[in-house]
């Protein structure tokens, strides 16, 4: 026994301790991630039937995929809508959080209060509450739209009519008004990106700025030559976070469709196929984004 113990070198012991620390994740990954992950591939090629003691699978080949791509009435629409919405919203969220983080990083009176308010959406973003509000808004819009408009935000229908009378192009107006409508949503989903970028801003040592200002750099130059390159890695982190968040958020149309298909619609097999199709899209988008970003960061340095 003693001999065996000496057999393990210092390095080997270190490997073992490290693995011991990480081992809970290894177990969890296998049981609660990898196993269900593989199961969901299997489910997507099967029809699933629940019995009293478990479930039975009937192999159907690619029928589920065929179903969602060519038969299912809503999937294609929801898929395209979700992608478009993500492509338009993610840049807006990022620009806004970058801007807000820079603002919150400056010194001014009431800064603490401003930060408290800006991070409030992180605390209050309960899915249940937002779902409840949207049902209320819908009922309001249906039953008494006049008062609903007063209570709702930015529903500037009168302004819109006025601008239409001025012969402005309708497509442009729709775009602007849609953007204005999604302002609250953009602000509410910027909490974590703001946190990430703000923390990055704070981690830049002030001595660099002092040196630069002694050399005669203006604030504008400082921003683009020092601040921006230094927080670039964290901007990338928040890009990835925002994309993932918008893909997996429960207000996302496709995510909701997957959920309703699972519990009420055409069954577990089709919903598994849907989520696989969806995940593949996420993987492609993330791969493309990461590729572009790593290229651009290389050219920066």
């Amino acid at each position: 026994m003693k001999h065996k113990r000496r057999f393990l070198t210092m390095k080997g012991r270190k490997y073992l301790t490290g693995f011991m620390f990480v081992s809970p994740f290894v177990i969890g990954f296998i049981c609660f991630f990898l196993y269900p992950f593989i199961q969901s591939i299997v489910f997507s090629f099967n029809q699933l039937e629940i019995t009293s003691t478990g479930y039975v699978l009937h192999y159907v080949g690619f029928a589920n995929y065929h179903n969602l791509l060519f038969v299912h009435p809503n999937f294609r629409i929801a898929y395209v809508d979700t992608l478009i919405q993500m492509l338009s919203r993610v840049p807006a969220i990022l620009i806004f959080s970058f801007f807000a983080a820079n603002m919150l990083n400056q010194k001014f009176r009431g800064r603490t209060l401003a930060r408290v308010v800006f991070f409030l959406p992180v605390i209050m973003g309960a899915q249940a509450v937002l779902a409840l509000q949207s049902t209320d808004h819908m009922q309001k819009a249906m039953s008494y739209s006049k008062i609903g408009a007063e209570l709702g935000m930015f529903s500037g229908s009168e302004l819109r009519n006025y601008l239409l009378e001025l012969q402005l192009p309708e497509g442009l107006l729709n775009y602007v008004f849609n953007a204005a409508d999604s302002v609250p949503q953009i602000i509410n989903s910027s909490g974590i990106p703001i946190l990430i970028i703000l923390a990055a801003l704070q981690s830049i040592p002030s001595s660099i700025f002092e040196a630069a200002s002694i050399e005669g750099a203006t604030r504008w130059e400082c921003f683009w030559k020092i601040t921006f390159p230094m927080i670039l890695p964290m901007i990338m982190a928040s890009v990835v976070y925002t994309i993932v968040e918008s893909f997996t958020s429960p207000y996302n149309q496709l995510v909701n469709l997957i959920k309703t298909t699972t519990w009420q619609g055409s069954g577990f097999g089709v919903s598994a196929a849907m989520s696989w199709f969806y995940f593949m899209t996420i993987a492609v988008v993330l791969a493309v984004v990461m590729c572009i970003m790593s290229k651009s960061s290389q050219s920066q340095s």
Binding site: Y15, V22, F25, F29, Y35, S40, S275, Y278
Partner: peptide
């Protein structure tokens, strides 16, 4: 602790972050 496979394992941690939970919902 750096041990063989630790980088791979950390990659798997990040993988669990980007896979939508809806995907493993039914099996779970």
């Amino acid at each position: 602790y750096k041990f063989p496979g630790s980088r791979l394992l950390f990659g798997l941690v990040l993988l669990t972050l980007i896979v939508p939970p809806q995907m493993i919902m039914v099996p779970l």
